[in-house]
Design a protein around this nucleic acid. Structure first.
Length: 339
DNA sequence: AAATATCTCAACCGCTGCACT
DNA sequence: TAGTGCAGCGGTTGAGATATT
């Protein structure tokens, strides 16, 4: 089609940027802003294409970039977000201030994938490697899988779990939620739901939010990608959510109750969280709660949360029966305690 | 010490979606 | 409606650094 692209222009420099080029670009953008990227190289006196300038600015020159190695918390967050978002690096990067999509992508491909395999987790599906169907893997992944299966190393803790978490903290609890949850065998009915009990909740969402800033997630439909529309329109109105308890004022002995209220069924569910613990991970164990109604997260005392939790038990059972009615035999109730 | 293998990461490539005409 | 320009995204590449033999 002969579509014109800045990349096809002749006499443009490629490869690594020199300090002089960096300085020119930095000075120009600091003074004038980038505006239209295609005009930046000319205005800044650079023999580069606009695309290259944009990339250099975003990945290297931007003043708000955080340098240095990733913290353990950041790595955990990336794993958690990858389980939710897959390879949507820019969306993942949006949740890590000062980090770029390129940086996160590189970290994932060079480090995190390896670490997960060593822990016996498939980085693509986030399932235990023992569950991964070899026939579905590319040859390269099969090789990696075979390698990492050698010393079958069962993870001794949930990689999403923080040290301060009380949730899923039993000694042999790795990626294993101990509660029952719903799992549909009808893929069209619940398109997008993960087959992974740890993640089915996650796969459908979304932009994590910070509890310290906003406890309300009733607007979840506005941040759930369009891919979840089929889920949202299910008879039960699934509205998944993911978040982090990041309130810096919280201490390890101060609990936050996460309450989920269903409408119109007034389903209530609660769990205790500690700072830094991914809500999604906490919710995994009680995933069925997320099948119903709107979700609202509120801060409440441990006692109040416990009372709410008690109150919700009976209602959840009723809702589970209702789900069976809705989906008939396609809907199974499974326990993953044996995994 | 040299050769080779592996890893890291900056940058490129090709594609998509959107806005505009 | 189709064509064009652009920004942005994710996959891939390859040079340099580091580890291993």
């Amino acid at each position: 089609m002969g579509r014109h692209s800045c990349c096809y222009k002749q006499k443009l420099r490629k490869g690594l940027w020199s300090p002089e080029e960096d300085e020119k670009l930095l000075r120009h953008i600091t003074k004038y802003g980038h505006g239209c990227w295609s005009s930046v190289p000319k205005q800044a006196g650079l023999q580069r294409c606009g695309k290259s300038c944009r990339l250099r600015w975003i990945n290297y020159l931007r003043p708000d970039l955080k340098r240095g190695t990733f913290s353990q918390h950041e790595e955990n967050l990336i794993i958690e977000l990858h389980a939710v978002l897959g390879n949507r690096w820019s969306q993942i990067a949006a949740q890590l201030p000062g980090r770029t999509d390129n940086e996160i992508k590189n970290l994932w491909n060079s480090c995190i994938k390896k670490k997960l395999r060593q822990r016996g987790i498939d980085p693509n599906t986030h399932k235990p490697l023992s569950e991964v169907d070899d026939s579905l893997l590319p040859v390269v992944d099969k090789l990696n899988l075979a390698e990492s299966k050698q010393p079958v190393q069962v993870p001794d803790r949930n990689p999403f779990e923080t040290s301060t978490s009380k949730i899923n903290s039993s000694p042999n609890n790795s990626m294993t939620p101990t509660k029952e949850f719903f799992h549909s065998t009808n893929q069209s009915a619940l398109a997008g739901l993960s087959m992974n009990p740890n993640l089915w909740f996650n796969q459908n969402c979304v932009k994590p939010f910070d509890l310290s800033q906003d406890f309300s997630c009733n607007t979840i439909s506005t941040i759930v990608p369009s891919m979840t529309s089929s889920i949202l329109s299910t008879p039960m109105g699934l509205k998944p959510v993911v978040g982090l308890a990041n309130d810096s004022e919280l201490t390890s002995d101060k609990e936050v109750g996460i309450q989920i209220e269903g409408d119109p069924d007034e389903l209530k569910w609660s769990e205790y969280l500690h700072p830094g613990f991914p809500i999604s991970a906490a919710l995994q164990g009680h995933g069925q709660a997320n099948l119903f109604g709107d979700i609202k997260c509120e801060s409440q005392s441990a006692d109040a949360a416990a009372a709410t939790w008690q109150q919700s038990q009976q209602h959840q059972q009723e809702q589970q029966l209702l789900a069976s009615d809705v989906y008939g035999k396609d809907f199974q109730r499974l326990s993953y305690e044996h995994i």
